[in-house]
Amino acid sequence: MSAESATPLTAPRPAKPKPAIPSGVLGVLIFIFTEIMFFSGLISAHTIVKSQAAGQMWPPYGQPRLPVGETALNSLALLVSGIVLVFTWFAFKRDPERARIPLLLSIVLGSVFVGFQGVEWVALLSEGLTMQSSAYGGFFYLIVGSHAIHAVGALIALIWAYDRSSKGLLTSTQLGTVSAFWYFVVLVWPVLYWQVYL
């Protein structure tokens, strides 16, 4: 740093600006953008294959129909879970202690959703809808399965956040990071439901 010591400090040292978005949240946001593109890829593929079957039956002949109504109810659980998580955020801002119960509620509702989806899968498999049975079945398990994997991952993150908060260690950035991912899981589901079930 010889050059620095040679010239006297004339200008005041500029302050380091606060980041517009905390690093953790920004990282997850970028990841979510990638995930949105991943699901868009799946949906596009599904749309194209579906359009090829135009004029014929969709779902194809001999394939079971999807449980549209039950899943709609189940989706409600997921949406409510997302809304509860919004309340968790505001509760956390006022008092981190008070955020624990809504957080737990959100986790339970999310788990109900994933569990019910699992039950539905078992039923559909026994009715003869498999990945190999048709492109229809393939896309159903592929799209809903990818969502389920993301949901499980996000639930694990939420449980981790709950564990931190019960120890009083949860920071707002951590909660923001984890909830951002859960919001993604919640908000992408209606689109998938619309595309796959309806």
């Binding site: 949105i36 593109m37 890829g41």
Partner: peptide
């Protein structure tokens, strides 16, 4: 980051 998602979807398929 923005372009790799659809390819990953295609690669899974």
């Amino acid at each position: 980051m923005l372009s790799v998602g659809p390819l990953l979807a295609g690669a899974v398929m």
